[in-house]
Amino acid sequence: METLEQLKARIEAAAPGVRVEIVPNGNPANPASLLVDGGHARAAAAFLRDDPALAFDYASNVTGVDWPERTVRERIKVKRMAGGVEREVEEVCERKTPAYLEAVYHLYSMSRKDGPLILRLRTENRTDRVSLPSLTPVWRSCEFQEREIFDLYGIVFEGHPDLRRILMWPEFADHPMRKDYAEPDDYEYEPTPHDAVLARARGHYPGGTQP
């Protein structure tokens, strides 16, 4: 398989206007991924599938990931004036990582026995701008998996032939796999409750420990 830099160049040539970034994998032994922008994702995907040298005809796995906003404290070196002399000091600085929902596609080539190529699509935020183009017209295997991401994460896939809840019942209103989902409080009994579980369980017995 070609390297990611070559792939990036070819995708940018084939689908003009697309923005492709290489996202390194924390563990360098495992493959890095390509971050593609939502507007041109379908054109890039069609190129990956139809190009005879690449022939990524098999989308194996479509995953949703929730990245809520986190505050990261880092020590960075900045230049500061101290006593008339400019020197480099280490300062602790806080920054907020962007919050988004992500869809990760693992692509393989069955005809050339090749792969994996990992594509990532990110939404703009986690609240109102949560739509991404659906890659189901390109790879039919995304159909149920994108429905599951819609059900459990809330990403709206535009162009999906049948976007409705797949695992939870249709009247369900939450997106349970999100990190900030509050589960319904219904396991009252724990054999050895402690800490938060004990506090919550006590709340069910307002008069004491008897129901």
């Binding site: 994998n25 924390g26 563990n27 495992n30 194996s60 796995n61 995953t63 990760v104 693992h106 994996p116 990992i118």
Partner: peptide, 21 residues
């Protein structure tokens, strides 16, 4: 505690490709 990163491992299960991401 593995170092931050990601991996996709797959096997040929009796029903098809079983993968864990």
């Amino acid at each position: 505690r593995p170092k931050p990163g990601e991996a996709y491992g797959r096997i040929e299960g009796p029903k098809g490709e079983l993968g864990f991401y």
